[in-house]
Design a protein around this nucleic acid. Structure first.
Length: 267
DNA sequence: CTCCAGGGGTTCC
DNA sequence: GGAACCCATGGA
């Protein structure tokens, strides 16, 4: 069991249900999730975050995944100080955190997310892991590797019931498996270049690319792209996005999403 | 039955 | 360059 004494306000309920990740499930003993083949349960106890099922050797891994090394209080304070509207977003979900998820898993799950709803995304991702991923403890499965997915045919993935997205999943997996889409290279690229490279994958447009950059590559500069978000943006930021937030749009995006979810906008 | 869900590709003009 | 329409699923 790992204990992070000061979680800096991390709210598991808000964070894991926020739509940035699709494999975390709430059980009676906390949030259950799998990342890089590691099965854990995350629980908040007062100011501490308890990660059960994790070994001490993985402390750094989970600290990074949960972004516990980041000074969020300073970041949120900056948000609230510089923009009244963004302050409302922070107020709507102060414990929201942007996770650092594995690149390939993020890319594939957000390809699946296109023109789709969260419950069905979860279902497809779960079937994908059961179908192609390595078995772990307690009947759970790791997210499949690029090689595992690239070896598949679209016919063998019909059980996913993912529709046309299967072709996109396979293209992305093959690109990563053969090395023409390389995480290390993407991380080394300037933001716009990495974004353009991601969009060379079939089925990866601005929204999927930005989500992958934001959640899977740690680029907190992704712009809000989808229509719904744009609508929230227009209402919350009628005069454009606050200049003070440049470089932090990704986090702001997540806050805006939470705010908009709690305060549905008129059509 | 229709509508739509955290899009993107293709085809038109 | 942008608007219209297509794409499979499944829940409301």
């Amino acid at each position: 069991m790992l204990i992070f004494e000061d979680c800096g306000g991390f709210d598991p309920d808000v964070t894991f249900a926020s739509g940035q990740c699709f494999r975390w499930k709430q059980e009676n003993d906390g949030w259950h999730g799998v990342a890089e083949g590691r099965c854990v349960t995350v629980l908040r106890r007062q100011d501490a975050l308890i990660v059960t099922g994790a070994a001490e050797i993985d402390r750094q891994f989970w600290k990074n995944y949960l972004a516990l090394d980041l000074d969020y209080s300073a970041l949120l304070e900056r948000f609230c100080r510089r923009s009244r509207r963004l302050a409302a977003c922070v107020e709507a979900a102060p414990g929201l955190r942007v996770l650092r998820q594995p690149f390939f898993e993020t890319l594939i799950t957000f390809i699946i997310s296109q023109n789709n709803n969260i419950p069905r995304i979860r279902g497809i991702v779960e079937r994908l892991c059961q179908c192609c991923g390595a078995p772990l403890e307690n009947g759970q499965y790791a997210f499949p590797s690029p090689d595992q997915l690239a070896a598949r045919t679209s016919e063998s993935l019909e059980i996913l019931r993912a529709g046309w997205r299967v072709e996109y999943i396979l293209d992305a997996a093959r690109r990563v498996a053969e090395g023409s889409l390389c995480e290390e290279q993407l991380r080394a690229m300037p933001f716009e270049e990495a974004r353009a490279r991601l969009m060379t994958v079939r089925g990866v447009g601005p929204k999927v690319a930005d989500c992958t950059l934001l959640y899977g590559l740690g680029c907190w500069q992704a712009a809000p792209m989808d229509v719904w978000m744009k609508r929230a943006m227009r209402t919350l930021f009628p005069r454009g996005f606050p200049r003070c937030c440049r470089g932090w749009e990704g986090i702001a995006q997540q806050y805006i999403f939470e705010y908009a979810r709690r305060h549905p906008l008129d059509k």
